[in-house]
Amino acid sequence: MDVLLQLIVNGVIAGGNYALAAIGYTMVYGILKFINFAHGSVAMVGAYAAFVLATSALHVPMVPAFFLAVLFTAVLGVLIEKAAYKPLRYAPKLAPLTTAVAVSFVLDAAVMILVGTEIKTYAVPFEVYSIGPVFITSIQVIVIVASLVLMVGLHLLLSRTRLGKAIRAVADDLDLSEVAGINTNFTISAVFAIGSALAAASGILIGLDSNLQPTMGFLITVKAFAAVVLGGLGNVYGAIVGGFIIGLVENLGVWYIPPVWKNSIAFGILILGLLIRPTGLFGSKDNTGGVLQ
């Protein structure tokens, strides 16, 4: 029983991170109807940006390093969109997918050269608290609080602001929004900025919770996508729920199967989800965004 509680806590923490990564993924899909394969690598770059700030000669404390890295990654996300996706907005669907994969390889390799391929940690000192039988580190508390704050912030942005309204309109119909006078290019840039910022946050929080590797982006991509599919492509709130489900199942699964297969669990959920309910848990025929034939 104690082990079960501990696994649930670990699952919620991992789930919060996956949910953050999944939000950016699903928002880009909602707007441009294409899967941004580079999303995980963008998250990885964010994590490394914070690492470089915090550990190099600069020695920026972790909290400002977090925000600077998030800002840097948001700008990077906007630039990537302008360089690699925007010229292909009306090209066959295969084209932006291809450049996204290429971007992810370029980002991974750039980090390998600049920082190295070894596993890194932020080496942030932490305390361990025990709540009854469950152990939780101060870092994990920060991780879960930060991910919840960011999700609530995103909800407020989407539901209460003018920009949020524009994003929802563009996601609904890009051409119609343009006709209605919405600056669609700006809105798309904003989505990439927000999505990349959240990806960076998730990358840093995952790094705080475990460690950093240049190849971590790939796993983030697959897990975030599994979360997105569970929640229904293009559905932000579905992606959050999907992220928590993936985190929980993955950590509870360790009870039954050897940990080396842990990363395969998200993939198994993805396949099962596609077989049983391809529109996702909350997907209806209306908001599949042209996903189904």
Partner: peptide
């Protein structure tokens, strides 16, 4: 039976 995007991520996984 779904559009190509799903195949891409599933094969990547």
């Amino acid at each position: 039976q779904l559009v190509g995007d799903y195949l891409a991520v599933v094969t990547m996984g």
